[in-house]
Amino acid sequence: MEPVQLFVTCMAENLLADVLEKMVGLLERLGVQCEFPADQTCCGQPFYNSGFQREGREMALRWMEVFAATAGPIVAPSGSCVEFVKHRYPLLFPEGSPERALAVRTAARVRELSQFLVGDLKRSDVGASFPHRVACHSPCHLTRGLGVRTEQQTLLKAVQGLELIDLNESDTCCGFGGIFSVVYPEVSQAMVEAKVRNIAASGAEVVVVSEPGCLVNIRGGLAKMNSTVKAMHLVEILAAQGGGR
């Protein structure tokens, strides 16, 4: 198996370094070698989605050039960033241009982590053990955007001791929405509160939130509402072997 290129995403790099470290650990445990293209920065999505398409395109070009020097699958712990590279990059450049061709090649290489584990590695049981009641949020860009709708559940069901429980309105947006959360903070707050109420009502000890933006948002919401439920990235559960929360 050729090595994978880590796409760490700016959000995870700056706020969730432990998630990245566990992702490396998990992949290596499964016999996958990891490489880290150190010149990578932001993929351009925050610019593009805020209306700054020119800046977004420039960032995309930079990002592609960094990864063009590498080979093999590009794996990220984020459905949103992967979706941006996969679906948006090719549309950013005129048809027939060399940039478009590069974007199409790059798009074919990117994978969100659960997609990579189930789809490419063909693993559902990664040998994890996590004896807790767990509910799972469905991040919008992972499920609706990338169409990765069942992979998280497949992986979670195979975790030893884990009890997967239903989360009401699991596919309703948590209110993050990138720039939305800053432009309309009151609405964003109402949305994350609704999400936290559903999480609390589920009876879970842990809620899986496999999207850095949503994780930061929901974690903050849980803290603000003094909930004892812990929000974790899928990677943190799959990396767990001793069973600790």
Binding site: V8, E21, V24, S181, V182, P185, E186, Q189, G220, K224
Partner: peptide, 23 residues
Amino acid sequence: APLNRWTAARPFPAFRGDFRSWW
């Protein structure tokens, strides 16, 4: 400001860890 627009709704996580130096 302008990040108070975020923290009015919920706290922001501290910048923790340094993946690059870990790597």
